[in-house]
């Protein structure tokens, strides 16, 4: 836990020294020149693109030479409102992001509780749990494709060996199973980070709270519900929100796994907008889609976070 504290607040310096220190600090300039090397690329390549990206949604921007871009107000959004394919993709995106976030949280909480208990093989689970976090998403996708492949994969042979069926499954290639399969893989990818975060939260709960509850006669479950969970609420709120945003915005994993197929069954909004922008060159239209995604993420966060944070008090 000591290492986890490195990013928390420093001990406050004695006030009388601080004033003199600040004067010494400001003696040679206000320190803004120290910020400049970071500020220039941030303003040019992050803030400006962000603002322009939002703005592009209100234009008819297209790819290509000598194309003029005009401001068209809400035209793109009006067009988008009638684009059934986009809304279908949006639904898929929500199903994907919510399922992965929820399942990943439950799985991670379970693993974190196990890692917090005094078990053998804990080191192995700890190390293994970090591997998916470190792997490039593209490699993760390749790995799962090899695992689930109908011929070189392990799945069908296992089914045959266990006499569970003929073993002709193609989980990623069949319309009804593609999305659930992709969701399971999404859980595999995102679980480690959530586990590590929750584990840190678990370890920062003071044991005296548990002891007090035990003295009062609370059993394991009761202690979990009335001590562990309330203590974890702020961390749960933070990590599930971040997970949701990351999942909703994820691209590489599903792009390599299914490329949105079969039949658009795993076409996440990011993939949809990517095809619109770089497949058809409709930059304005794709930006409008991204704008809609941002607004909906913000709305969901606004609905979710206050209620979570209130419970944590």
């Amino acid at each position: 836990m000591t290492s986890a504290m490195t990013l928390s607040a420093p001990p406050t310096p004695p006030p009388r020294g601080a004033g003199r220190f600040q004067r010494w600090l400001y003696r040679s300039g206000s320190g803004l020149f120290l910020l400049l090397p970071a500020a220039v690329p941030i303003l040019l390549l992050s803030v400006f693109p962000l603002v322009r990206g939002i703005y592009l949604g209100f234009t008819d921007a297209r790819a290509g030479y000598r194309v003029t871009t005009n401001f068209v107000g809400f035209d793109q959004f009006a067009k988008l409102a009638h684009n059934a394919l986009f809304w279908q993709s949006f639904r898929i995106g929500l199903v994907w992001a919510v399922s992965v976030t929820v399942l990943q949280f439950l799985a991670a909480l379970g693993l974190a509780l196990l890692l917090n208990a005094d078990l053998r093989l804990r080191w192995l689970a700890r190390t293994l749990a970090l591997v998916p976090w470190a792997m490039p998403p593209v490699i993760v996708a390749i790995m799962w494709r090899l695992l689930l492949d109908p011929t070189v994969g392990s799945l069908n042979e296992s089914i045959r060996l266990l006499h569970l069926g003929e073993g002709t499954l193609n989980l990623l290639g069949q319309a009804n199973s593609a999305l659930p399969t992709v969701i399971v893989i999404g859980v595999w990818v995102g679980m480690p980070q959530t586990t590590v975060t929750l584990l840190a939260g678990l370890q920062s709960i003071s044991p005296t709270l548990h002891e007090a509850a035990a003295v009062d006669g609370a059993g394991t479950w009761r202690r979990f519900v009335s001590v562990t969970l309330p203590q974890l609420y702020p961390i749960i709120a933070a990590i599930t929100s971040l997970d949701f945003i990351w999942n909703f915005n994820s691209f590489g994993l599903v792009y390599v796994l299914t490329a949105g197929g079969p039949g658009g069954n795993t076409m996440l909004p990011m993939l949809f907008a990517y095809h619109e922008a770089f497949g058809y060159g409709n930059f304005g239209y794709a930006s409008a889609m991204a704008d809609v995604m941002v607004v909906l993420i913000l709305l969901i966060m606004l609905a979710y976070l206050p209620s979570r944070l209130r419970r944590s008090r």
């Binding site: 941030i42 040019l44 390549l45 992050s46 803030v47 400006f48 693109p49 962000l50 322009r52 990206g53 939002i54 592009l56 921007a61 971040l242 945003i245 909703f248 915005n249 691209f251 990011m270 907008a273 990517y274 922008a277 930059f283 794709a286 930006s287 889609m289 991204a290 704008d291 995604m293 941002v294 993420i297 913000l298 966060m301």
Partner: peptide, 21 residues
């Protein structure tokens, strides 16, 4: 504020202006 915002926005929003830039 910028650190927080950069976490929320989908990369697709930034990638088109970056591409043009």
């Amino acid at each position: 504020l910028w650190i927080l915002i950069s976490q929320v926005f989908p990369t697709i929003l930034i990638v088109i202006p970056l591409f043009l830039l």
